[in-house]
Each structure stands twice: as C-alpha cells, then as structure tokens.
C-alpha cells in the first residue's frame, strides 16, 4: 500500500529534492508526511501546467523534483508536458492520481477519467506504469530510478 510516510521515505532515498504538487483527495492525505520529510521541499502550485514548469526549472538548475497531480490536472497540462518533455527533453517525473480507476474496474462509475488517462499518457509519449493498491512505495521508487538512470521522463499512475 502506498501511503504518505512510505512514499516520502522512498522519495528521500531516491534523492528527490522537491515535490511540486496540487493534491487530490487521495494524494492530499500525504501532505503532512511530505511537508515534514527531511531534504524534500513541498511546493504548492496553482495549476498543473505551472507545476510542471516549476519542476522543469528545478531540473534545469540541477535539482531532482517530482510532480504530484491528479489526472484531471494532467489533462489541463498537456502543452506544458509537451514543451518540457519533448522540446526541452527534461527528465520530468510525474506521480498522477488516476481518479475512479478502482471503481471503473468494477464497472461502477460514470467518471470518464479512467477512460482518458492512459491514452493521454500514451499520446504525450511519457512512459508510465499503473500502480494499484497491492503495490508499495518501493515500486514507485523503482520506476523513478529507472527513468532517472535512462535520463528520460516517466510517470506512475496511482489507481484511486
């Protein structure tokens, strides 16, 4: 299970310096853990495209940020993602809450977020993995490390 303390600890071990975020109801529960994680600065942005741009500046300056947003914000942030990942070729890493995924697996939801989230990631050509409740923070850390080692962008979609 992914929770705030385990994710914060995993990000610390990965050397992450900043979390730039706009929380959703799931990620929001991690606020305290991320706020108090030694070595990690939590930056609160107003919009998701802006969060990606702040992270891009940090990467340009040699820091190691991750962006945490909900999939709805990912939909808004397309041009920012396109620019910083593909024009500037920066190794951006995103942690994206995939709203209603678990309910959609059971056929119990009218929310269209699950319908569009993975196709959007594929369209923007950002490699990603889907992490479900059976996964742990080490799985997230492994994806981060792999993307960093390959100097490329990457993402995890967190099934909510």
């Amino acid at each position: 299970m992914l929770d705030g303390p385990s994710v914060a600890a995993a990000l610390q071990e990965c050397g992450v310096t900043h979390v730039v975020w706009i929380p959703d109801s799931h990620l929001g529960a991690w606020d305290a853990a991320l706020s108090h994680a030694p070595g990690i600065t939590l930056i609160r942005a107003c919009r998701e495209g802006e969060a990606i741009a702040i992270a891009a500046g940090l990467i340009l300056g040699g820091r190691k940020p991750v962006v945490m947003i909900q999939c709805t914000g990912l939909f808004e942030a397309g041009d920012s993602l396109r620019n910083f990942v593909h024009d500037m070729k920066l190794p951006l890493f995103l942690i994206v809450g995939l709203r209603s995924h678990m309910a959609a697996q059971k056929g119990k939801v009218a929310d269209t977020c699950p319908q569009f989230s993975e196709p959007i990631m594929q369209t923007w050509k950002v490699p990603y993995v889907l992490l479900e409740p059976r996964h742990v923070a080490a799985d997230l850390a492994a994806e981060y490390r792999e993307a960093q080692a390959e100097k490329r962008a990457g993402a995890v979609l967190l099934a909510e």
């Binding site: 741009a53 340009l60 920012s80």
Partner: peptide
C-alpha cells in the same frame, strides 16, 4: 515554449 509558463520555469531555476 509553453506560453505562460516562463515565470514558473524561472521560479524553479531561482529556487535551484
């Protein structure tokens, strides 16, 4: 660029 994101890019760079 991504129009409108220059200041946010600058913020990240200034923090670094």
């Amino acid at each position: 660029s991504s129009m409108g994101q220059g200041p946010a890019l600058g913020l990240g760079l200034a923090l670094a």
